[in-house]
């Protein structure tokens, strides 16, 4: 239920409008979008687990809850660094394709958003993990589909004032309209 809710009904990109920067930035090519989707899925899930542990076993006992934003940013940065090293070792090709975008996951607002929002939901450890995974699946799904859509749009006869980012934004808004159809699917 949490999976469906975060992946579809409250999709982070199209319904909550978080993580729009990589959504617009990496969706030019389907291949790099897929790599980015995989990397982000990994980072999101891991960072939501790590930030849960940090909050409940480090910040709370010390009474430092007000430091959570900074602490989460640091946790996310560490996870991203770890992912970057791992991708570099295991798949140099993917590393080359992703290039600058891999370290940029750190600044993906969806990653921090997931950590903070799952805290607000007072969720258990398992729920927090699923929340991160669901958000990641939703993000990946939308990113990959949007990338395929943009490849097609690059061949379309778009009026000049609307070419490039403008039509991409309009497409994203229509996709968001379609995602409204999922509202009310799961009550969370």
């Amino acid at each position: 239920m949490i999976l469906i809710s975060t992946a579809l009904v409250n999709n982070f990109v199209l319904v909550q409008f978080l993580g729009l920067c990589p959504f617009m930035g990496v969706s030019n090519k389907l291949e790099s979008a897929m790599g980015m989707a995989l990397a982000t899925t990994f980072v999101l899930t891991l960072s939501s687990v790590a930030s849960y542990l940090t909050f409940h076993y480090l910040l709370e006992p010390l009474g430092l809850e007000y430091l959570r934003t900074i602490a989460f940013i640091m946790v996310i940065a560490v996870v991203v660094q770890f992912t970057e090293m791992m991708v570099k070792k295991t798949s140099p090709l993917l590393y080359q394709v992703l290039g600058i975008f891999l370290p940029l996951i750190t600044t993906n607002c969806a990653v921090l958003g997931v950590a903070l929002l799952s805290l607000n939901r007072q969720s258990s450890f398992m729920e927090a993990t699923l929340y991160g995974l669901g958000a990641a699946i939703g993000f990946s799904l939308v990113l990959v589909l949007f990338a395929a859509m943009r490849e097609r749009l690059s061949a379309a006869d778009v009026p000049r004032p609307f070419q490039g980012a403008a039509i991409a934004m309009i497409t994203a808004s229509l996709m968001s309209l379609a995602f409204m159809g999922f509202s009310g699917l799961v009550q969370v």
Partner: peptide, 26 residues
């Protein structure tokens, strides 16, 4: 069927078509 049985809209043809339009390039 998904939106009709558990979603918020009684007839879901428009949304279902739009959602699948979105997956067409893929």
């Amino acid at each position: 069927m998904l939106i009709r049985t558990s979603g918020g809209y009684p007839d879901a043809v428009a949304f279902a078509v739009l959602l699948m339009n979105f997956t067409v390039p893929f």
